[in-house]
Amino acid sequence: MEYAIEVEGLSKHFGSYAAVDNISFSVPKNKIFGFLGPNGSGKSTTIRMLCGVLLPTAGNLRVLGKDVKTNTDFVRQNLGYMSQKFSLYEDLSVEKNLDFYAGIYGLNKSAREVRKRELLSMAKLEGREKQIAGHLSGGWKQRLALGCAMIHRPQLMILDEPTAGVDPISRREFWGIIRELADQGTSFLITTHYMDEAERCDLIGFIYNGKIIGDVVSPIHLLEQERAKGIEDVFVRYVDRMNKEESSPGIGGYNA
């Protein structure tokens, strides 16, 4: 099987604190992988290492089959990243934002125009090219940010809480777009705190206190396996189990 992401014994220490503690998982291509975990669990640190922005303390990281450390250029050219902050230039127009990232990713003029049309239509922003990005509402901003993040047709998209603070209608619309892109062959890693979104993923994995709990499985499989009603229950159960293990390491009554 071809993998979009392969993580092996990955750790990141800040001083004596282990933000990410020896985690391993892999995500096949063309899937939407939901990367779940509470705030401060190590999600963002892992993502930053995947993007090649942060260097791991230990472990191996392969993105699209290539080692991140030795193929930084390849990874940057084939990976799209979108953060919850929608890092757009709010003082520039929709079109100027797209133009800028097109230039940064080295698209030539004709390719740029074609790609811009595609993305404007995908983000349902046609006719708003001249509008200032800062004046767009949440859902539109989010879709423009997605467009900017994938102007270079990345094979893997990493979305860090892309729906935080966006209304339900826009969230549903957004997931529609994501699903369509995944069907067309883009791989996704998405973090979210919305459990309905987690259930829409092809695969999910939990991270807590810098450690991966359980396996990377499909949500349906996980619910069956844990005999739980919803992802949230599983999540809470995992966290409880972890906390008990940590407070009484000698007993170790559960097998995760």
């Binding site: 993007c51 090649g52 922005v53 250029d73 940057r76 050219q77 990976l79 990243y81 979108m82 953060s83 902050k85 890092s87 757009l88 230039y89 990232y101 940064i104 990713y105 080295g106 900017c148 993040a149």
Partner: peptide, 9 residues
Amino acid sequence: TIEQLMVTP
């Protein structure tokens, strides 16, 4: 926005 620039080439 710097975060976005950092993941670009």
